[in-house]
Every structure is written in structure tokens, then in C-alpha cells.
């Protein structure tokens, strides 16, 4: 099996959005999510020596991020004091470590919904990762960040017709990529 290599200079372009999406669905706060992603990259940098190349870079970064997210929940718990620890289970038969449960499922949707969502989200991010960088950028700005056409054109210094050509190519490639499992 070929060993995976590590290239920190490409991390942001390749994984920042993926890690951010992963985090936001789990901590429900964009600013905190952004900090956790940044912390993850810096921690990854520091422990680069420990990267054995058995898993992909992305898997390795996600494993660091998961620990950061758990740490984050521990921290807000200790900040709020002991009152917060006394979460009551409604019936005597439920038991478990409430902290871990909150980390696993801290959002209001049903577990099944969010699992499907994150699987779909992973699939979409994988497909986005296969697009050429410029296409991916324009597509994300237009479709995910919902920026106005004019704003994107100014920012990237392209014309509106350029933008629509890029969007068309990206949408065609994305539909092809998702077709097999999600259409």
C-alpha cells in the first residue's frame, strides 16, 4: 500500500472547507468552528512527525479535530460550573456519560437526519475536492456562501459571463460526480 505523504502548505485549500463543515454541524457556531479548524491545522503542524502515512492526511486531520471538538465541549462545561453537570435523565433506565452523548449529537435534529446530512455533505465535499481549484472556489462562493454575482466577479476579477461558464462546468461535473450514489 502506498504511504500517504504530508503537505501542510496545501492543507487550507484541500481541507479547510471540509473540516469547517464537519465542525459547524457539531458545534453550531461559525466563529468557534473556525477557531477549532485553525487549532487543528496548527496542532497537525506540531505533530507532523507522528504522521505515519497509514491513513490519508484528511483522516489524520479529522482525528485531531475530533479531539479538539471534545475538548471544546469539556471546556464550556467546566466554564459553566458544576450546575451544568447535573443533567437529569428522565427515566431511571437511561444511563451513560452525558458529556460524550452531547459531543456525539449536540444538535436538535434526529440522529438519522443528521447522519444522512453529514454523509451527503461528505459526498458533496469529496466531489468539490475533485473540481479544479478555480471552479470549486466560484461554485462555493455562489452556491454555498450565496454571494451576489457582482461581488464574486469583483473579488476574483472575472466577468459575469466568465462566472456563468465556470458555474455551468462546475454544476455539470458535480452532477456527474454525485449521480452514482445520490441522484
Amino acid at each position: 500500500m502506498p504511504k500517504h505523504e504530508i503537505h501542510p502548505d496545501k492543507w487550507i485549500d484541500l481541507y479547510a472547507d471540509y473540516l469547517f463543515n464537519y465542525t459547524v454541524t457539531r458545534v453550531s457556531d461559525r466563529e468557534i468552528a473556525q477557531d477549532l479548524v485553525q487549532d487543528t491545522f496548527l496542532a497537525g503542524l506540531k505533530s507532523m512527525k507522528n504522521f505515519k502515512g497509514e491513513a490519508s492526511e484528511r483522516t489524520w486531520l479529522i482525528s485531531i479535530l475530533k479531539r479538539k471538538i471534545i475538548d471544546h465541549y469539556r471546556k464550556i462545561n467546566s466554564n459553566k460550573g458544576k450546575a451544568e453537570v447535573r443533567i437529569q435523565y428522565n427515566d431511571a433506565e437511561s444511563e451513560g456519560d452525558w458529556l460524550e452523548e452531547r459531543v456525539a449529537d449536540p444538535f436538535d435534529k434526529t440522529a438519522e437526519d443528521s447522519m444522512q446530512n453529514s454523509e451527503l455533505g461528505d459526498a458533496i465535499h469529496n466531489c468539490l475536492g475533485k473540481l479544479p481549484k478555480k471552479q470549486a472556489n466560484v461554485f462555493k462562493m455562489k452556491t454555498v456562501l450565496n454571494y451576489e454575482t457582482e461581488v464574486i466577479c469583483n473579488e476574483l476579477n472575472i466577468t459575469a459571463s466568465n462566472l456563468w461558464v465556470i458555474i455551468h462546468r462546475a454544476r455539470t461535473a458535480m452532477a456527474d460526480c454525485l449521480k452514482e450514489n445520490w441522484f
Binding site: 485549500d13 469547517f20 463543515n21 461559525r30 473556525q34 458533496i124 452532477a175 454525485l178 445520490w182
Partner: peptide, 29 residues
């Protein structure tokens, strides 16, 4: 297919970082 793509993306409730914010992250890294 185009309409399906739109629906799937809405359903996934995707989040992305702002490009400016990514630039800042890059500099820090």
C-alpha cells in the same frame, strides 16, 4: 440533474469558509 443538484446541496446544509478567512488561515499556517 441540475435541479437535483440544487436540492441535494440544500439538503446537506453545507458550510464553507469565506475566502478571505481562508487567506488569513493560510498566512498563520
Amino acid at each position: 440533474n441540475n435541479a437535483k443538484l440544487t436540492k441535494r446541496i440544500e439538503a446537506a446544509e453545507l458550510e464553507c469558509l469565506d475566502p478571505k478567512c481562508k487567506e488569513d488561515m493560510k498566512k498563520d499556517l
